[in-house]
């Protein structure tokens, strides 16, 4: 699997997609380069893009990470395409911005069932909604947890932080 093949596959789904290649040097004596691709896509392009990646080779989702930017919530889908040959994997990160007022994304579980845990995690931590996800109950947080801990300054989460020692005051 080469980076070019993956870019070509992505562009069949999302024409003219701007893909940033960030090759990563690994090694000391005879360093090799591990291809890392980063691209920003709209949420409506997510399903075709993931299908294209799946078509390109064995597809693994490492994790979906995310961040609250205020007006938008940025989801980063970290994939690895093609394993089995030494140095044969291409790391692909798809950045999907969604508006905080309507944080809805299509679920990719239909294409990649292994994404369920990480999508459910984003529901509880960021308050994102996934359409078509098989299950949406909590994974890590207690049932009925009031807030979304990764939302910026989430008041409900802040209330739950219970510190026994305010060491900053003591030091001052």
């Amino acid at each position: 699997m080469t980076a070019d093949e993956v870019v070509a596959a992505l562009r069949t789904a999302v024409p003219d997609l701007a893909v940033e290649l960030r090759p990563r040097k690994a090694g000391v004596r005879a360093p090799l380069e591990v291809p890392e691709l980063w691209a920003t896509i709209g949420r409506d392009q997510l399903l075709p893009a993931v299908s294209a990646l799946k078509g390109a080779g064995p597809l693994h989702i490492s994790i979906i990470s995310g961040r609250d930017l205020g007006e938008t919530i940025e989801l980063l889908y970290h994939f690895a395409v093609g394993y089995g040959t030494p140095g044969g994997e291409v790391v692909v990160t798809l950045r999907v911005p969604v508006p905080a007022s309507d944080p809805t994304v299509p679920s990719i579980c239909g294409i990649l069932p292994g994404a369920e845990t990480t999508e459910r995690e984003k529901i509880e931590f960021l308050g994102v909604r996934f359409t078509g996800i098989p299950r949406s109950d909590h994974v890590f947080l207690p049932d009925g947890f009031p807030g979304h801990p990764w939302r910026k300054g989430d008041p409900e989460t802040a209330k739950l932080v219970k510190r026994t020692v305010e060491w900053e005051k003591r030091d001052g």
Partner: peptide
Amino acid sequence: YDSYNVVGPVDA
């Protein structure tokens, strides 16, 4: 010490 999901040390 500052986690939202930790209620405290055991003696709490």
